[in-house]
Structures are given as structure tokens and as C-alpha cells.
Design a protein around this nucleic acid. Structure first.
Lengths: 263, 263
DNA sequence: TCCGCGACGTGATGGGCGTCACGCGATATA
DNA sequence: TATATCGCGTGACGCCCATCACGTCGCGGA
């Protein structure tokens, strides 16, 4: 319920968002003028699955978790966005409802940009379509990754993947290896990798036993060898490099009908 | 390796693709001229994960399955595209590599549009960005669905979901219920719902025992009551919880239970 | 007609992991 | 200093499902 942000800091925030990065100052200032900034406590619900889209949120500080839940309360995190990232762009673009729910994982400061403001921007700056596409592309690739992970890896591997992710994006390297700060609860991690809290605990133990990680008290984890941790996985995570041509492998026989997945 | 399609039928095909639907005839003709049409046998690999994008494929007849594999050969289908749909648009737009692999599931006829041709189109018709966005949005929503399904449902539920999908899009209704034609192997289905062939067999049996489906020999399945089948799932999650509106509210209720708050 | 093969059904087995039930230590609140 | 609370570690138990190992049926080819 604060609104202290000066317009200028808001403009800077917006400039950092990939979506708006290429706009000229004037447009940014206009956008900033339409934003509503507020801070929210941990656990604040931004929107839930199926709701009509009211606008887009930009994270200024803190983190927002985007997830789906099933009726029994289980939760699967789709992605987490931090400072300088936009949340819920998709529905903004295609007019559909929010495909998932979102809440803050910690006390956060958020800027809300109403849909109408964005649409006006869109009409006056059709060239931001490029940025929109890049943004959606990023999401899509990430989701493919999430899907694969869920489908193939066991809990330990998923956890390893998560830790490696932290390491590369916020780890500090020392001569003993990379140290990461995990200020999330095991429960949070469990949601993120689609499992139960206890399983996370056990997976951690397992990784420790294999000397792949080492916990330095209080939320800090040492990864002696990131590559080795990374390689623990049945193999690769971002299999973004495989020149191997399949030529003619496990040919899969007939199938037809208006095939559409769904499940 | 045939190329019999006349230009006109190709133009019609392109017009049916959401991506190109709004282009004028002249542009479509130009595109058609740049396409390479060929037919491919079942199991033909269009591209594999990580390859650089060479262009986009449009399915004229048959079906193409887009999937990821893990080193041990397990496979998870991301989606399946049929006649009139484009495959691999994403890498075309954002310049990245293919995020997944694709192959034909049956004898198919495909039109291939080289990347350069598309890029030229894109430069001369910047307004198709709209269509691109819609297209990506559709994919994104679908993937969210796939993810949720994998994360939450057991095999029987995933199978039920798949069958319901068939029913709605290609089922023929009789007075005994909806009859669907499933021309796919149990093995194919297994890939699609992320499980093993044997599990599909058992899940089918289970659904039969519950009278949710009934198999009429030879690839045909009767679904007496689609809604009941649909409802077998732990249930759909579309419930809304609370309307928290950032723009209007000034109250900041403390983090609610909801099962998760963290710091 | 016989044989090979591909699709499907089914039992046995074992492992992963979700769930329940505690214990323990650290922090917060009175 | 006592006491609730929260995050974490662990054992026990049981279900789901992947895998292996066969068996049957139907079909096409020699």
C-alpha cells in the first residue's frame, strides 16, 4: 500500500523488462504513469487459474510463483519470476484467461499495468510484437523443459537440475566450488519440482552422500563440481546440442485420426 | 519424394493455416512458390532436438508428432499436429534451435517453407506478428495443460482425458453413446500420456471394468457417457478462490494459509 | 498352411515416492 | 524460561507404475 516509487525509478524498472526494453523514453514514461505500484506480503494471490486477464504485473522486488493446483491442493510450479520480469503476458496478448495462478513467495513490490494501457501501447507501437514473441518463446522453451523434467527425471535429478540452475544464475564461485544461497523452504522446492517435502529432504541426503553437494549450515550449499552434479542426470538437461541425426530409428507405425494430444 | 501438388492446392493449404490465414492471395502465392512439398513415410524424422531451424513444415495430410526423448529412449509427446497445421514455428520466430524432435506417425504429405522465405514474408508483412502470437499462445496453453496432466493425474485419468479429447473432436454420437475410432497403437498412446505400453493396457481394462468405456472390436471404443468419463478425473480445477485485485485494493491481509507462504 | 511378427493382455517383481507419524533443534512469543 | 511454531530429518507403509517375461490372437508372406 505504498506508492512511493518515483516515476523515474519506475521508468527504469520498465526499461529493464525485455518486453519494454526497446521503447523510447516518452513511451516508457507514459506506461509508468499508468502503473499501479504496491507492495504485497508473502503469499499474496495475484490471480488464479481461469480468471479473466486484467493486466500484467512487473516484479520490482521479491518473487512471484506461477503454478497450477489440483483440487486436492497439490501444486506444480510452472515458473518463478523475479525482479525485472513480467508475469502473465500471455493472456494479455491473446485475450484468454490466465492459464495458471500466481502468488508472491515473499514480501514483494509489484507494478501493475492495466490491460487497457498495454493495448494502447500495442496499437501505438506495433513493433513491440517482436519483444512479445521473444517473451512467449522463452516461456515456451522453459515449459518444454519443465515438461521433460517431470516426465523423465526422478526426484534427485530434478533437484540437481534446480540447484544447477541456482548455481549458474546466482552462485558465487570459491576455490572449493560454487556456493549457492537457497533461501527457499524445502516445501517450496518440493512444489517447484513436483514432489513432496520429505522427498526433497531425502534427495538432498542422497546428493550429499554422493558428495555432489555439501551443506554449509543455514541455507548455504556448496557444489564442489557443478558439471558432475549436472551429469548425474540420466544425461542431459538442456540437450541443446546433439548433431546426431536420427535417420531412421524407432519407427512408430501407423496412427491417424485427428490426432491431438490433450493428456 | 513427390511434388505433385499444384500451386493452387498449396495456396489453399496455406490459407487454412492460422499463421497465414489473413494474407492476401498474392502473398500466399509467393509463399507457395517457395515451398517444397514431399511425402514422407511413417516414422520420417523432420528434425531433432537442438538442431538449428531450417524452416517450418506445414502438414498437408497425415500427422506429425512433436516430442522429447531421454537418452534411455523414453519419449514424451508434447503435441501432435494434423492437416492444416504448422510445425516448429517457435524456432522460426526466435531464432533458437528446435526445442524438440518431430516425426511423422504415418505416411504424410508435408510442405516445407525455408526459413529465409518466412523471414522475407515477415519483413514485408509485419502484421502477421499477430498470428504468430496467437499461435504461440495456443502452444503455450496446451503445454501448460500437458504439464499439469503429467504432474497430477494417474495413468487412468490421463488416458481418460485423451479419450475424451478424441470424443470431442472426432467422435460420432450414437444412441448408446459416443463412438471413437482409435487408430493408434497402445504404444503410441503410452508415449503420448507419458507412461508404458502395459500401463495403458491395464488402464483400459480398468476403465472398462468401471463401465466408462466399452470396446467394440477393432480400434473402436464406445463411451457411454463422456461426462462421466471426464468426471472420473480427481476433477477439473477451475474453481476460483479469491478475487484479489491489485489495482483497487488497499488492504493487505496477512499471508493466508492457502498452504504456502514462505520467505 | 505354416511361420513370423506385431498388437494386446496379464502376472510377477521391485523401486520410487507420497503419506503418515514422530523426533529434534532453532526461533519466536509470552 | 516455558511453550508453541516452523523447518528439517527419518522410519514405516503402501500404492502406483516401469520393467520383465510370457501367452494369445490375427494377419501377411513364403
Amino acid at each position: 500500500m505504498t506508492e512511493t516509487s518515483t516515476l523515474d525509478t519506475l521508468v527504469e524498472l520498465l526499461r529493464g523488462v525485455p518486453l519494454f526494453g526497446e521503447l523510447e523514453d516518452e513511451a516508457l514514461r507514459q506506461l509508468a504513469g499508468r502503473c499501479v505500484v504496491r507492495s504485497a506480503p508473502a503469499g499474496w494471490v495475484l490471480f488464479t487459474t481461469g480468471e479473466a486477464c486484467r493486466g500484467v504485473y512487473i516484479v520490482q522486488s521479491g518473487h512471484v510463483r506461477i503454478f497450477r493446483t489440483d483440487p486436492s491442493g497439490r501444486e506444480q510450479v510452472l515458473h518463478v519470476e523475479g525482479p525485472g520480469r513480467a508475469v502473465a503476458e500471455l493472456p494479455l496478448f491473446d485475450g484468454g484467461p490466465y492459464p495458471a495462478s500466481a502468488l508472491t513467495t515473499e514480501e514483494s513490490r509489484l507494478a501493475f499495468l492495466p490491460r487497457a494501457a498495454f493495448e494502447h501501447l500495442y496499437r501505438t507501437h506495433p513493433d513491440i510484437a517482436q519483444a512479445v514473441i521473444r517473451s512467449l518463446g522463452r516461456r515456451l522453451r522453459h515449459l518444454v523443459h519443465v515438461t521433460e523434467t517431470l516426465a523423465f527425471r526422478d526426484v534427485a535429478a530434478r533437484l540437481a537440475l534446480l540447484l544447477v540452475g541456482y548455481a549458474q544464475q546466482s552462485g558465487t564461485r570459491t576455490d572449493a566450488g560454487v556456493v549457492i544461497e537457497v533461501d527457499r523452504t524445502q516445501e517450496d522446492i518440493a512444489h517447484e519440482i513436483g514432489t513432496a517435502r520429505e522427498s526433497v529432504s531425502r534427495a538432498m541426503k542422497q546428493l550429499r552422500k554422493q558428495k555432489l553437494i555439501e551443506s554449509l549450515g543455514r541455507n548455504r550449499i556448496l557444489i564442489p563440481d557443478v558439471d558432475r552434479l549436472h551429469a548425474l542426470l540420466p544425461s542431459q538437461s538442456d540437450a541443446e546440442h546433439r548433431p546426431a541425426r536420427l535417420g531412421e530409428t524407432s519407427v512408430t507405425p501407423p496412427a491417424d485420426n485427428a490426432g491431438h494430444s490433450s493428456a
